[in-house]
Amino acid sequence: MEAYTTEEQQVQAIKDWWKKNGSSVILGTVIGLAGVFGWRYYGDYQIQQKESSSNAYQNVVTAAANDPEANLVGLQEFVASETASVNYRVMAAINLAKTLVTQEQYQSALEQLVWAEEQAPDELKALIQVRSARLQMQLEQYNEALATLAKVSDETYTAQVAQVQGDIYLAQGEVEQARQYYQTALDAAGAQADPSLSLKINDLSVEEDHG
């Protein structure tokens, strides 16, 4: 099973999931209409709602990418919208959190990811949990960060989880535990390992030799 070891791989995983599942993102919210109003109405409604949510999502995300600060409110309003599909809102919340991080609004970014995790399909939960743990570490919420990582059940994130665990222990001065987790991450990632892992392990070894 391939491990996700970089941000680019995580983003590509989301895109692949979206291509596979995007056509049915609102199915659960309108399935009851088929029996009440007939299949034709249901089909038309589904298409209209999907296109509306998709277009709105693409517009707001594109605008935010071009000018994050100026379009921050647009992302926030889309996430809070009750008319857009919840899966599109989850994706927007992930993008919003990323924008907030660039502005060092870590607590606000974490709040977006907490909401996104509650609403997200299983395929996206691991990604959100790893990012949430990184933010909790940034906020020095170390125990909470470790607890968040403990919820990750997707084995493709083993390397990512171990690396963040190493970062958390290193931030607390637990050098030996940090090195053990970095080694676990390196072993799990194999040829796809983040180059920084080897550097971190080597740096910790040098520090210990001179300690």
Rank of each mutant, 00 (worst) to 15 (best):
E104W: 09
V61I: 11
S153Y: 07
Q119K: 15
G38A: 04
Q58W: 01
T158H: 08
T148D: 10
N95K: 00
A150T: 05
S53E: 04
A84Q: 06
A185P: 03
A191G: 03
I128R: 03
V30Q: 10
Q129T: 00
Q107G: 06
E155V: 13
Q183M: 11
G38L: 02
H210V: 13
E123C: 02
P195R: 11
E82Y: 10
L113C: 04
S205H: 12
I128N: 01
N55C: 00
Q112M: 12
F37K: 14
D154Y: 11
G43E: 15
L113A: 01
E155F: 10
R89M: 05
G211M: 12
M137C: 04
A56R: 04
T5M: 10
V11L: 13
M1V: 08
Q9A: 08
A191D: 13
G38D: 01
G35I: 03
D209E: 15
S196M: 14
G22I: 06
T184P: 06
S24L: 09
K125R: 12
V36K: 15
D203I: 05
V164S: 07
V152W: 06
I31Q: 15
L110P: 01
E144L: 06
L170T: 05
L124R: 11
A185I: 07
Y142F: 12
V130M: 13
